[in-house]
């Protein structure tokens, strides 16, 4: 059992921040790694990126968007409650050695896992530019955190309510045209990461992505998270989650992510009905 020490609504109505007690995981975890959680005896195992690691406090931070049954149930947990299983740290840490100038591109709540990654890049001596995109100002998360670890923050919103009006790749391209970069790291929904890779390709800049495939064990045993990278089959859990974004077969990943769409909807609807939720 892992106690929930802090919970807050990060972005209304459905994105939540959790600080969870997991001393052994926190002692070992590095930026870019993830955990697999299971809420209760009948729960499924889902991978969640680490959005914060505090070894001295023995805690990890997780960001969850309530889009399905498990994330919905997690969103309903309160401070003082507990998560049954936290398994990790899993996956390989992001290579955060001094990489010169790094641009972090975060879409949606993918911005959150970029926070420990950016922090590690900065500590290793890199200069960090963060590019964050959202549909509008109220949907932006982790802005203050990212400002704390970035030399420069660029914000784009679809409606222009904050930063530059446009999408994240507009700001990214502008930054690359103006002063280039040694590395771009993108975390977010697969279509967003794909768009970032398409945008950086003409610049020939190394682009790292963190792939969010469907997983069960996270230790290489089930092979459910297999992804196609550079013509080879890789397991996102043990070979990744970071890969060279220009080599990723995005259509394959996006297709595999929808494998259980029907069942996920069925499960979510049944749960909402049981709890009289809209």
């Amino acid at each position: 059992m892992h106690r929930i020490l802090e919970k807050k609504l990060l972005r209304p109505p459905d994105v939540f921040f959790f600080k969870v007690s997991a001393p052994l995981v926190a002692a070992k975890a590095k930026a870019g790694q993830f955990v697999i959680i299971r809420l209760h005896e009948k729960g499924e195992r889902i991978p969640l990126s680490l959005a914060g690691i505090d070894p001295s406090a023995g805690t990890i931070s997780l960001i969850v968007m309530a889009v399905g049954k498990t994330t919905g149930e997690m969103a309903a947990l309160e401070e003082g409650g507990a998560i049954k299983d936290v398994c990790g740290p899993l996956g390989n840490p992001t290579h955060t050695e001094n990489a010169g100038k790094v641009i972090l591109a975060g879409g949606g709540f993918g911005i959150a896992p970029l926070y420990p990654i950016g922090k590690a890049f900065r500590e290793a001596g890199s200069s960090v530019v963060s590019v964050m995109g959202a549909r509008s100002k109220s949907l932006l998360i982790y802005e203050n955190e990212m400002r704390g670890i970035s030399d420069k923050v660029l914000i784009t919103t679809d409606d222009g309510s904050a930063g530059m009006k446009g999408i994240i790749t507009d700001a990214l391209k502008a930054e690359l045209e103006a002063s280039g970069a040694d590395t771009v790291m993108a975390v977010g929904p697969a279509p967003m990461m794909k768009a970032v890779c398409d945008a950086t390709k003409p610049f020939g800049v190394r682009t790292i992505v963190s792939l969010n495939a469907i997983m069960i064990d996270g230790t290489g045993m089930c092979g459910g998270c297999r992804v196609h990278v550079g013509g080879q089959t890789k397991f996102a859990c043990i070979d990744g989650p970071d890969f060279d974004g220009h080599l990723v077969d995005w259509d394959c990943l996006i297709n595999r992510q929808r494998m259980y769409k029907t069942e996920e909807k069925e499960s979510f609807e049944a749960w909402k009905k049981r709890h009289n939720l809209p």
Partner: peptide, 22 residues
């Protein structure tokens, strides 16, 4: 086979949706 059996045995997918794993 590992994934198919793990979903069924460890995660009890044969009892979906009572158990969450499909």
């Amino acid at each position: 086979a590992n994934e198919f059996l793990t979903r069924t045995n460890l995660m009890r997918a044969y009892k979906f949706p009572e158990y969450d794993t499909p």
